[in-house]
Amino acid sequence: MSLPLSPAESVAVARLHALLELLPAALDKRLGVGGVTAFEHTLLDALSHRGQEPMRLSELARQTNATLPRTSRVATGLEKRGLITRSTCPEDGRATNAALTSLGTDTHARSRVLYANAVRELVFAGLEQLPGGGIAQLTALSSAVLANLDPEHPAGPTESSNAR
């Protein structure tokens, strides 16, 4: 039988819970002026890396660490707003592909700037007192936790894909 969490463990996980609750809402608020939520921006961002080449919704879900039902639901909303197109996958008629429209590309360009500014202010500014600005520590900590949550999935986009 396990022992209860130590006081230090309790504080650490409580702060993690707070971060997981507060950050998405704060990002949504900042991105709202660009007409998207943080998750919608994440989907548009993943699609933008493909240019005009379509991506299967299952791959989009995998890349964004979301469930396929959530990805499909949000993609339906993005399609209704003219930001993406969805089509049947020619290689597998059971699968659905998505691709950015020109409006989606423009929306992504606006939301990308809003997102970068929000992340710098809401996340990175709080890490500035740590050595190297704290980004390497945040990456290491989150990667270690993600490795336990989903050992078969890479922790996230590579440094080179974020440089776009």
Rank of each mutant, 00 (worst) to 15 (best):
T139I: 07
Y115F: 12
L114E: 11
I84K: 01
R50P: 05
R120G: 09
G77W: 03
A136T: 11
R62Y: 01
S6F: 09
S2R: 07
N117A: 07
A46S: 11
L3W: 14
L43G: 06
V74K: 02
R15E: 13
E91N: 11
R15D: 10
T101F: 04
N97A: 05
N97S: 05
L5R: 15
L78G: 00
S58K: 13
T42V: 06
S72M: 08
L5V: 13
V33R: 09
N65Y: 15
V33M: 08
P151W: 01
L43E: 05
T67H: 08
L27W: 00
S102K: 00
N148A: 14
T42I: 03
N65F: 15
N65K: 12
G93Q: 15
A14T: 06
R120F: 04
G104R: 05
R120I: 04
S58W: 06
Q129W: 14
N162C: 12
T42E: 09
L103S: 14
G134F: 10
S58M: 07
V119D: 00
P157T: 04
Q52P: 03
H49Q: 09
G104Y: 06
L3S: 13
E21Q: 08
A95Y: 01
P154T: 11
P131K: 04
E21N: 06
V145W: 07
A66P: 08
A38Y: 05
L60S: 01
D45K: 14
A155Q: 04
L78W: 02
A99W: 00
R81W: 06
L103M: 15
L141D: 06
A163D: 11
R86M: 02
V145E: 02
A61D: 07
P157D: 04
S111D: 04
P24N: 13
V74C: 05
L83C: 00
D28N: 08
A109I: 00
A38D: 05
E79P: 00
L68G: 04
L31F: 00
S161C: 15
T101Y: 02
C89N: 14
P24H: 13
L22Y: 04
V145S: 05
L122A: 09
Q129L: 15
L68N: 05
A66V: 07
T107R: 05
F39R: 11
S161M: 15
S160A: 13
G32R: 03
S2H: 07
V145P: 03
H41A: 04
N65D: 13
P4Y: 07
E40W: 06
L47E: 01
T42A: 10
R56L: 13
A95H: 03
T64N: 11
Y115L: 07
S87T: 11
S6P: 09
Q129T: 15
T67G: 10
C89D: 13
G104F: 07
G156D: 10
L19N: 10
L122Y: 08
L122Q: 10
L22N: 09
E53T: 11
A14Y: 00
E9M: 03
A99E: 03
M1V: 06
